[in-house]
Nucleic acid binder design. Structure first.
Lengths: 146, 146
DNA sequence: GCTTGACCTTGCCATGATGGGAAGCCCCAT
DNA sequence: ATGGGGCTTCCCATCATGGCAAGGTCAAGC
């Protein structure tokens, strides 16, 4: 299997396959006499694994760990679960941060008629460095608080 | 005000102030005879505006638009609101994507005892390209659906 | 056999926002 | 006048990805 077919079969672009090889995430494959990379089914399998993990938001570094655990069949589940739990925590922190932003903006947007008057309260609020630096103002309302 | 004081006053790092100038987001300030950048209070104000907007997740491109609207006092609120609403939509899409990931991982982690057995179901699931490519399997359960 | 088009190779550049560091100049206080 | 801290510019790195260009290769059709 050439790199193009491997890309199609795994869902990882040819560009990224070369990059993963360059950074050591995957081993260099065999080459044809002409220098073409040739992939075995097991390598396609690895690429598919990588793509699944990327789709779940794992970084390449985390994926390197997961791959090592995957290859070593004797490794206990505990270690995999630890990585996954840490990643979930990371995702949740990012979700919370985005929700805070969206909540604040929703509030501002609702306070803005969206009409054709000038003097927009949204811009006013951006220009005034009221919140977001102070540890916590009298806190009349917490937005992102899920 | 030198760049260091401007950074402290606005909360934008000196490094980023120079970068914003280089990319045209802010105008080049006056320089002292020795070539030091000197900032007026109005420029500090602008930097504070930028930082507020960054904290709310706006891209530099969006901030450039917001700054233009801010400077032009005759611009109707409508245009500001449009930008903000678009950004909220963007944030919400990202939140949904992250929630989908976290939900799937939560599901996997719960299915994994986290004990010291090998043969982890999480790795199994990553290796098997079941979901996430198919349009929508029989859908026994939607995770990120808030 | 030769041409053509699709594929492969390497290598470089770009993204977006940010930090790090080096080499050298400047200012102020001691 | 000396030292420390701040300023200047310039270059590099991040993370994962895409794009482009120049050149080699393969397979099909003539």
């Amino acid at each position: 299997m050439n790199i193009g077919e491997a890309a199609k079969a795994s869902g990882v672009s040819a560009k990224m396959i070369r990059y993963y090889e360059e950074t050591g995430l995957i081993a260099p494959p065999e080459r044809s006499p002409a220098g073409y990379r040739t992939y075995e089914p097991s390598e396609i399998h690895t690429l598919t694994f990588i793509r699944s993990a990327r789709n779940l938001g794992f970084s390449m570094e985390e994926i390197a760990e997961l791959l090592a655990l995957w290859r070593d069949r004797e490794r206990p589940r505990r270690e995999v679960k630890r990585i996954v739990e840490a990643h979930i925590g990371d995702l949740e922190a990012r979700i919370r941060a985005l929700q805070d932003m969206a909540g604040t903006l929703r509030h501002l947007a609702d306070a803005c008629g969206g009409d054709d008057r000038p003097d927009c309260p949204i811009l006013k609020s951006l220009a005034a460095p009221e919140p977001d630096t102070l540890p916590d103002p009298p806190a009349p309302h917490r937005f992102g608080a899920i």
